[in-house]
Simulated scan of single mutants.
Amino acid sequence: MDPWGGQRDSDEPDGESLPELLRSWRGRADPRTFPGLTVSGRRSNGLTQHDAARLAGVSERWYGSLERGKKAGYSEDFLDRISSALRLSRAERHALYVRAVGHPPALAAVPEADAAAEMDEVLQQFLDKQAPDPAFVTDFAWNVIGYNEPLREWFPWAAHQANHMRWAFLRPEAREQLVNWEQDWARPYLGQIRYERGHDPNNEALRTLERDILAGSPVARRIWDRREMVEHPDGDLRRLRLPYHRGREVAVRIVALRPMRSNRLRVIVLMEAD
């Protein structure tokens, strides 16, 4: 049975309540690894409820209600913010959803099987060697299938089954974190989507991506009508304002690559610019 007296989901870990899990997840997190948190004078390890709420960008009262196991209409955005703040794994995010709202998270876009299979140890080593610059790999529908640790630190959402473009257009924090969002990010991103759609009009993943973004973003619909096309972002200089940098604006030079042994993958490195 779940904490509310219902039937427990078959994939849910047994015997642990939502409050127990959240306290454990908070307790294992090292506050020294979170930029902006004060660590001197603490009496114990782990994050406080105040820390968790601050990192998630929600009120301490609302976070406290969740950790007490109070049943409420928690939104997907709220639960995903908590997942990112506590650095939950995909399985832990699943457990959070099941206990908090009674069902698992909606299925994200699934990377193409062939593309995911090509994300091998050699390519992961390449990503890791780009540190301290963030680097990641997507399939042609921008589903993230590999990343290095700096990328996860800059963009915690990447730790979940994530789609780069859906985050950029459908998550409200993206407009704050991607500086000059409409001109520097949204327009070229939509140009890339239109370019890929034109080259592979029967690709169902690209068709679904286009539909979801245009349905969820009025600004994207307006920009889409410009019919702009962009082949790639390689060499572009853009700016970010991320919690990882404590709100400091950072310029990055985008390096976009495609492995010669694969026609299904794109590799992106964000080189911090002076």
Rank of each mutant, 00 (worst) to 15 (best):
D2C: 12
G5H: 03
G5V: 07
E12F: 03
P13M: 04
E20T: 13
D30F: 00
D30Y: 01
R32W: 01
F34Q: 09
T38K: 12
T38S: 09
R43L: 03
N45F: 01
R54I: 05
G57S: 12
V58L: 14
S59A: 12
G73H: 15
Y74N: 14
Y74E: 14
R90M: 13
R93Q: 13
A95G: 12
G102Y: 01
H103Q: 14
A108E: 07
P111I: 05
M119H: 01
M119W: 01
E121R: 09
E121Y: 03
L123C: 01
Q124N: 11
L127N: 02
K129G: 04
P132F: 00
P134N: 01
F136W: 13
T138I: 04
D139S: 05
F140T: 09
G146H: 02
W157Q: 15
A158D: 04
A159F: 01
A162E: 13
M165D: 03
R166G: 06
L170D: 04
R171C: 08
A174T: 08
E182Y: 04
Q183S: 15
A186V: 11
P188C: 02
L190R: 04
G191Q: 07
R197S: 09
D200Q: 10
P201F: 06
E204V: 09
A220Q: 02
R221H: 05
R221W: 06
I223G: 03
R227H: 12
E228C: 04
H232C: 04
G235E: 07
D236R: 15
R239Q: 09
R241E: 11
P243H: 07
E249W: 06
A251H: 05
A251W: 10
R253A: 10
V269C: 11
M271A: 13
E272V: 15
E272S: 15
E272L: 14
E272D: 15
D274C: 08
